[in-house]
Amino acid sequence: MGDLLVAGVDEAGRGPLAGPLAVAAVILDPDRPIEGLDDSKKLTEARREALYAQIVGRALAWSVVLVEVDEIDRINIFQATMAGMGRALAGLPVAARHALIDGNQLPKNLPCTARAIVGGDALEPAISAASILAKVTRDRLMHALDGQHPGYGFARHKGYSTPAHLAALERLGPCPQHRRSFAPVRLMLDQGVLF
């Protein structure tokens, strides 16, 4: 069984102007395959939700961590992603022997050996599963934040820099969930617009 403990790792939410980054690690069970795993961005919301339930029910182990906005602003989105990947792997209830990480960079100080795979969320089922867990977790959180910070439309655009979000940001100014280190928010703050 030890040879099978390969974790897929991926994130959701690197690009948005608001909300945390979600990072997931998943060790799939080869005896309980899940059909239809793919890059979360290629799946409908309903399909992601259905797969999420299967992944948490069938995986040997899974972990999702959030890197909050203040940490993203303090250390930058790249470092926040690397830190989140290490935490997601360390948070697995069963230790992975090896990790497959979506992207072209490996975090330092991982708890196991690892390999970076560009486009891995569409190539490796374990990374696809991590992609889905991260995306669904973050989308659910953005729906909740929409209620806490009305007017921004977080439930619709999930914090990405859509025209509607930029218009709301212009109208309302940033809320505590906005990433101050990201250009549109930083520019607004530099111009003296406060929340």
Rank of each mutant, 00 (worst) to 15 (best):
D3G: 15
D3T: 14
V6A: 00
A7V: 05
A7G: 04
V9I: 14
D10P: 05
L17S: 06
L17D: 04
A18N: 11
A18Q: 12
A18F: 06
P20S: 08
L21Y: 04
A22E: 10
A25W: 03
V26G: 01
V26D: 00
I27V: 12
I27A: 02
I27G: 01
L28C: 01
R32C: 10
I34H: 02
L43T: 10
T44M: 11
T44W: 01
E45R: 14
A46E: 15
A46Q: 14
A46D: 11
E49S: 13
A50Q: 14
Y52L: 14
Q54Y: 01
Q54I: 02
V56R: 02
V56T: 12
R58S: 09
A59Q: 00
L60S: 03
A61T: 11
A61C: 04
W62M: 07
W62K: 05
W62V: 07
S63D: 05
V64K: 06
V65L: 03
V67R: 08
E68T: 10
V69S: 00
D73K: 12
R74A: 14
I77Y: 01
Q79H: 12
A80W: 01
T81N: 13
T81D: 03
A83M: 15
G86I: 12
A88D: 04
A88R: 06
A88P: 09
L92I: 13
V94P: 02
V94L: 15
A95Y: 04
H98D: 07
L106M: 11
L106Y: 04
L106C: 08
P107M: 09
N109L: 12
T113I: 08
A116E: 05
V118N: 04
G120C: 12
D121P: 03
D121H: 06
A122N: 08
E124W: 01
E124Y: 03
A126Y: 00
A126K: 00
S128W: 05
S128R: 07
S128I: 10
A129D: 00
L133Q: 08
K135H: 04
V136I: 13
R138W: 07
R138T: 13
L141G: 15
L145F: 15
D146W: 03
H149A: 10
P150V: 15
P150K: 15
G151Y: 08
G151S: 12
Y152Q: 10
G153Y: 05
G153S: 13
Y160E: 13
S161T: 07
T162Y: 02
T162I: 12
A164Y: 02
A168L: 10
L169H: 03
G173A: 07
G173K: 06
Q177P: 01
H178Y: 07
R180H: 07
R180Y: 02
A183D: 05
P184F: 00
V185E: 01
R186Y: 00
R186G: 06
L187F: 07
M188R: 15
M188G: 15
M188Y: 01
L189K: 13
L189P: 06
Q191V: 11
Q191C: 13
F195R: 15
